[in-house]
Every structure is written in structure tokens, then in C-alpha cells.
Write a protein that binds this DNA or RNA. Sequence first.
DNA 1: TGATAAACTGGAACCGGTTCCAATAAGGCG
DNA 2: CGCCTTATTGGAACCGGTTCCAGTTTATCA
Lengths: 340, 340
Amino acid sequence: MPTIEDVAKACGMAKSTVSRVINNSQGNVSARTREHVMKVVREMNFQPSAMAQGLSKQRSNMIGIVTRNANHLLTDGYYGSVINGIADAAAAANQVVALYQGVIWKDEAKTQLTLVNGWCDGFLILMANQDAALSSALLAHGIPFLYVNSGDLVDGIMSIDIDNADAGYKMTRHLIEHGHRRIACIHTGVDQFSIERRDGYKRALQEAGIECDERLVVTAFYKPEISGYERAQELLRNTSLGITAIFAATDVLATDAVYGAKDMGFHVPDDISVVGINDTAEALRCNPPLTTLSQSVEELGVNAVNVLLDRIARPTQPSRHITWPTRLVERETVAPPKNR
Amino acid sequence: MPTIEDVAKACGMAKSTVSRVINNSQGNVSARTREHVMKVVREMNFQPSAMAQGLSKQRSNMIGIVTRNANHLLTDGYYGSVINGIADAAAAANQVVALYQGVIWKDEAKTQLTLVNGWCDGFLILMANQDAALSSALLAHGIPFLYVNSGDLVDGIMSIDIDNADAGYKMTRHLIEHGHRRIACIHTGVDQFSIERRDGYKRALQEAGIECDERLVVTAFYKPEISGYERAQELLRNTSLGITAIFAATDVLATDAVYGAKDMGFHVPDDISVVGINDTAEALRCNPPLTTLSQSVEELGVNAVNVLLDRIARPTQPSRHITWPTRLVERETVAPPKNR
DNA sequence: TGATAAACTGGAACCGGTTCCAATAAGGCG
DNA sequence: CGCCTTATTGGAACCGGTTCCAGTTTATCA
């Protein structure tokens, strides 16, 4: 690969001049010189070395995605979509995306150093909950970062997320508006976002004057034995509960519930209505397609990148929390309750 | 952040000595000096700058994942799992993973330059088919790379993939061994891997003396209107076809087919057997759980990283194609055909 | 104890760019 | 046409490490 030195020599100019040309906004260069240099640059197929440029500019044009546990991450359509959005926006802004994931977390202190003294100009942190140690390490070194969908709102720490309580509220309210009163809730019980969604569910019930029956609030996870499938079947088997609808905190839980109900012979939505949240690929693949809450997750990723880049460019601006809007998507899993 | 200069000053030594200590395998350093330097390094929380190190060593310890189309990538559990494996193995080997995806492909020439003169020591290319232009650009600059699951075998270009024809053969044969003779095949029709899997299906039929009925070979994709769900229903609706089993080229197509069949009132596997390939998360979530062919996809990712790192360390070794082993996973979607 | 080889360590050059500062060339004006 | 201001350009220092080379210690052995 040719270096800037080679180009300079070929032009008969100093490398500082060549540098000015390729960073075209610098000190002025005469039009004739600029053209000449550009021609040689094209001819030699010159591209400045990212590392050399990074070292002297103290800027890599690379942003990092930090995630803790690999398993649920990329295999779940949700985070995958966010990352797609991030990757697209980053590419559009000529940024490279680095993925920090998994094993790197074994040694916290080392990880922090790696991040701090590594390549990235800033970080997008995708975790179910914020990590205070990580936050303060980055903060201490003045490295910009942004929590994406972490649920928490901490003062002085930027974040972007939907209003999870409102999300739960909206979906539950949607069911209530269709006439349901015995509505079950399936949530994960551990993740911040899931708990908030459940709280939104409770608020909607309360507001409608429906007493919350704790037997209808159950936890499930993405593992076969305790998935939404089994939980839905347990709820439906106990006919004395009399549920007519299920609100699930995520689309995966919701579609599992749909299939659980169908396999027991229930018809969705005539016998039982189901709603989810997220509008991931699972919602569309579900049969019947799932009524859910879209958070335009790829656009959220795009937005996250832009906010971070903005922060990198202007580090002194005040930090902020962004509440990302949601939109109810009506598909085919909700109907009025049958009299029973 | 302290620099190596600061550490050297604090130790009263030259920075070359400090450098030797932190790269501990270099020229010898006395035990006393090493200890002293290490102590100061720890006290000052020193971590060498990745960029400076990269520049002078001409090595970034960063590998890139290159993918063309974002959409099917991360949202599909398959590539997501591969990337998980890659990320884990990379982290274990102290490598950073960069994600080159999507928009970057708009300008081919520029992309190639970006890759060639960018950060990465080598690339893992995840695409359905190889890209000759990309290959030759990387080859010309002596940058190591490895195609992962690209289907093609090109001389002098390293790749790792399962034997797709064999995969199709194995699954079809599994159905034949259970007594099926009217076996449908659902494949994507466009992707190299999918076509090869179909060819394997045909070979298995031929070998068993079963004539291939082209009406049973259909194409489907991940979009609602032309998914495995619809295709399976079309096949089952036409009872004159008399199919008793479906071989699908991927787990997504297969689970869609399962649900299509179930929604028509067929029982899986008693009325109709279904098999897929890949053993992604969908296979386990399927109800009943899908009989499929595992390719231990995360381990494949791990292996890909190791092969690439090996190549980076020893660039002169001959290139090779790796055929990744597969394993049939019997779950609950296959049974002998009912007499009908 | 002195000569000689081996082990350490310091200094300088280098990786490939950017940027500050000074020098030179060009342009404007009386 | 000569002087002053401004636009261009070259040179050197710097970003933060690594590594080669040579000089200084220390160890070994006669």
C-alpha cells in the first residue's frame, strides 16, 4: 500500500500538503495543487492508514457495541434488529462498528481498561440493566456512551429506551377496550423492562377499576420448560381463573402463548386474545399474526448512533434521556371475549 | 490516561524497557526490573494505546466480519449464532470484532479500500455466495480472509462450510428409512446452500429408487405470502400428491411448514413428518420440537476464528477448505407414514 | 583478579499520519 | 514599482508505542 509519503514524493510536494488535500477542510490549498494531488491519489489508489490517522487525530471513527451475555443477544430477533440499525447508521456515517461481547466480561477491571484504552470513540451499551462500575469507568475517562434499552434512568448518563411502563399500559388498555376483564400477564420477572411493563399492566387494570388477581400474573422465560407455552397452558387449564386474554411482555413470550393455547384446542383470538410487545420478526411469523407494540427497533438503533456521534463531536452538551415512541400494531390476535 | 513515557519516567527507565516488560516475551529483562515496572504499571493503571500499538506493530488484533445484506442476517437466529461463536472465540483470543455490514456495500471500490486499509488483520466473510471482486482485492493485498458458509469452493480461497448436499441427503434418507416415499422438498431456490441441499434430497431419492416428482419440489422464502407455511398447506391440500413427509432446507422453513400443517388439522408427526436443517433456536421452540441436522453453529464460528488467526500468524501456509461436520438430531417431528 | 561472553538497558529511528509555525510566493494598493 | 497583507507550501515536532543497535553491566571462567 502506498503511504502519504509516496504520494507526496510522486507529486513533488511535502506530505503536509497532501494531508491538507485529503482532509480537504484544513488550511487552504490552491485549486491547482489540490487537483494535481487528487489525481495522483486516485492513480496510486491511496487510502490513508486508519491506524496512523487514528493515532494522530486521537479519533478512530469507530464505535463499540457492548453487550454482556451473548446468548439472548443475537439469536433473539430483537437485539439483532437494533444492531442492524446501528450497523446501517454507522456505515452511513463512515463509522466502523466493533462488537464487545461475551467472554470479555470475565474480568471486569480488565474489560474496562480494554474499552477505555481501546479503539472506540464511544460506546453503545445494550444490556437489560445498567452497570454502574462500567458507567463510572467510562465517565471517569470522558468517553461518551449511551445505554440502549437498559430500562434505567440514571442522572448524568445518557440513555434511549421506550417507556416500558407505558408500553404495558397501552397493550393492556387495548385488551380492556375490547371488553376483556380477566387478563393474564406473562413477564420474565427479572429484567427491568419486563417488570416495568408488568407495572404498566397493573396500572391499566387499576385505572379501569379491575382488581388485579395475582394468580394471573406469572413469570416465564425463553427456556422450554418455563416458556410462555407452558405458562399459557397452565393458565388456561385452570378454568376457574376464567381468563379471556393474555398480555405478554415480549413477542417471543406472546407467540409461545399463542401456540400453547392453540395446541390445547383454543382458537386465537376467538377463544383467547393475546398481545405482545416489540414487534420483532416473531410477531409477523406468528400464526395468526400477533397484535403488538412496535418500537421501530432498527430506527431506534439509527437514532442511538446519531445521538452518540453527536455526543462525540460535542462532548460538553448536557446528557439526556431519550424516550423512544411506540406504536400499536393491530393484527389478528385480539377479539372481544366470548361470553363464558 | 498515562502513556508509556509516563510509566518510564515514574520508573526512572527508558520507555523501551517498559515496552519490553509489557510485551514480556521480547529481549530479556532482569527479574528485578520487570517486577518494578509491573508494579508501577499496575499503580498507574497503564494500558498501552491500541492505536499506537497497532501502528507500530502493523497489527490491530481486530478481525472483521463482512456481510452483504443486513436484513436476513442478525434477525435470523442462524447467522446470529455464528456471530456469537465468532465473538466468543475472538474475545477469548484477545481479538476485537468489527462488523462491516449493509450500507458500506453501496460503493464496491471504496468498500474494498476501506477493508484493505482499515483496521482489521483479517476478515471472516459471511455471505450466501462468494464475491469474486472482494476476494481478489483482499488477495492482492495479502490480507487473510475466510468465507464462512458461503457454499462455494474456490481454489486458493479459504472457506468453512458444511457439506450442504450431504446435509440434504442425510435428512431425506432419514425420512426414507422411516418408510416415507412421497417426500416433498421446500427450499429457497436462490441460495447456493439451499440448492445443494435440494440436490442432496434428489440424490437420496434416486439412491432409494424413488422417482423424483417435480411437483413435490417447491420454493419458499421468509416472507409471509410465500413462506413454508403456505407452501406446506398447498402441498397438503392437493391430496392427489399423497405426501407423507416434508424435507425443508432450513429450520425456519420447516417450522413454518409444521405450523401450516397443524393449522390444517394435521398432526405432526403422525399425519405428516417434517425435517429441517441447521438446528437453530427455531427448531427447539417448534412444537413439537423439530428433527433437524445440527451443525453446531457457534462452534463453527469458533473454528472460523481460529483458522483465520492461524492464517494471520502464518500467512504462507496453504489455503484450505474445511468441511464442517454435522449431526442428525432426532426430536419429535418424524414418524413412520400412516397407511393412506 | 582480569578477560570475555552474555545479559540488560538506553537511545534513536520508525510506524504513517496531522498540525503548528515559519518561509516563500502571490496579490493588492498607493 | 516597491511595500504590506494574505494565500500557499515546506519542515519539524508530535501522536504513543516497538524494535534495532550499541553501550554498559553483570556473570563466568581461567
